[in-house]
Design a protein around this nucleic acid. Sequence first.
DNA 1: CTGAAAGCGCTAACAC
DNA 2: GTGTTAGCGCTTTCAG
Lengths: 346, 346
Amino acid sequence: MATIHDVAKLAGVSIASVSRMLAGENVRSAEAIRQAISDLGYRPNASARGLRLGKHHCIAVIVPDIANPYFAALVRGIEERFMTQGFRIIVASSDEQFSAESELLGNLVDAVDAIAIVPAEEGERTRRLLAALNKPVVLIDRSVGDEPGFDLVNVDNTSGAKAAADYLLSLGHRRIGIISGRQDTVPGRARHQAFLATLAAAGVDVPVEAIKIGEFSRDFGRRAAQELIQQGQIGAAPGAGAAGITALFVANNTMAQGALLALHAAGVSIPRELSFICFDDFDLAELLPAPVTVISRPAIAEGHAAADLLLRRIEHFGSTNQPPLEHKVLPVSLTIRQSCAAPPFN
Amino acid sequence: MATIHDVAKLAGVSIASVSRMLAGENVRSAEAIRQAISDLGYRPNASARGLRLGKHHCIAVIVPDIANPYFAALVRGIEERFMTQGFRIIVASSDEQFSAESELLGNLVDAVDAIAIVPAEEGERTRRLLAALNKPVVLIDRSVGDEPGFDLVNVDNTSGAKAAADYLLSLGHRRIGIISGRQDTVPGRARHQAFLATLAAAGVDVPVEAIKIGEFSRDFGRRAAQELIQQGQIGAAPGAGAAGITALFVANNTMAQGALLALHAAGVSIPRELSFICFDDFDLAELLPAPVTVISRPAIAEGHAAADLLLRRIEHFGSTNQPPLEHKVLPVSLTIRQSCAAPPFN
DNA sequence: CTGAAAGCGCTAACAC
DNA sequence: GTGTTAGCGCTTTCAG
């Protein structure tokens, strides 16, 4: 690999001139240097530059699971923005584990200029971990306490859950079930509470038997739906099911897929026996026997927004006038398809 | 950030001793050093180490599109292996563009020790580009010419396509259509040819009107299916369609999703009017009105295999006795669900 | 077993 | 405008 010295020698100048030209300064023998650079196929050594400048032009992106389509799209959005700015992206999956996340962060801090993260855990220890990094951080989708102290991008979970509830209500449903994600996360809590509050405001109470709370995973979604079925909440014989629910809200796509799997296996007909609505769109949602009505959110746009916030903060990092903390909330939208209908008589 | 000097001073030794301890050598004051390290929260600076050693403990992973679930799973597999070995992963999407890929590679080479890549293009110029990197490279899914000169991991496309053809044949289909991906790629070619060859061996010819070849994209899949429908190959009135096809093979998941969308929009009933089978499993394939029968491949395992090959090559890199080039072919399997049936009478 | 010192490739004073 | 030079933090000779 050619170094700056080789270039300087070939061009007949000092290494300083080469370095300057590379930095965009005016140099007399610019042409000769350019020539030498291309002759030698010289490219500056990233480690040396990183060592010298304390900058790496590299961002760490940590998500719970890169194989989850939502996170993949999010990463894509972040990538799109940063690549055009000459930054590299290191992506890693935390597996929803604080310990893994903490280890990853430990390995990556020294190699990156900033961190974009969907934290595995929203507790105080995550906030401390992140703060200790002493680097620009942007939180995505989830927060870390009420006063995170970092920029934050997420979607309007409350409006989304409210829209879902209003829609179900407008269809005439009064006995509604809900499968929610972990309540120690912002999306988990916001969606759960907004949904129930909207129903409550309309005089509709959700009995505890019809509330399932657990991991944001396909597996939990499936188990929760199975329980609902076994309890007779869903799919009881028509007429007999006065106690059962006529509609189900599921708080994210992975859980929804699991629930759909269980519902399908049990032969529950959607929307005839049960109206189904969930948060997050997913691939092929429109191809299902009853195309699923969803609250969709803009994953790629979230990635862009997060990148923009981070870029701004990187720019001002170290200087005294930090831009104020920003919390960007992106809108979600109700995509009506065919998984919801008026409740059956009984 | 604490440096090795701080640690040395606190432990009352020279920086050399600290460095040695870190390298695993025996040192008298190991205990004091360990203490100092943890007191200061010291972690070696990656750039400095990279500069000094010419190694970065970092791998570049380049895929066409990280938002494609197959590639996301592949990346996950690679990640799993490397993370436990203390390597970082830089992921980037090439968008199926040689130019983008080439630029990415240019930006990344100096920062990584090896490259895992699903090349956007399989031509000679990609081979040259990769060879010029002078780093360990593993090709995944696609090759770069007949003599790539790199380790390669892919799946048994031929057997998979053959299995699909045999299955359709065994069901009694004789008029079969195919939607294939770009023929300048290994998977595109292998699947296409094996499928047609298997049919031909059974005396079944596929008319040119029933062969669609294009991008491996959802969009092309949709267009191809639409054409098939418009041409009267699919969905013609029963009895009238002696010229139409009774089964369709689609060569990958994204095209299959597009085709399914078009078929669904046109009201084609699967498998009553048309049997449908495709390469690659996809999320929720089992939830569709007619759960899709597929040839599934082990994305995560491919990632593991690629990582293992690369690890081995990194280890021996520079030494004289290079391990021989390896081409690892992983098996695929036919997952029978309900999208295929015997052809309708007419 | 240990410390001093050289140097990886680069940038940014500093002096001209 | 230009060249010289001092490190960035680390590993690794080389003496001891």
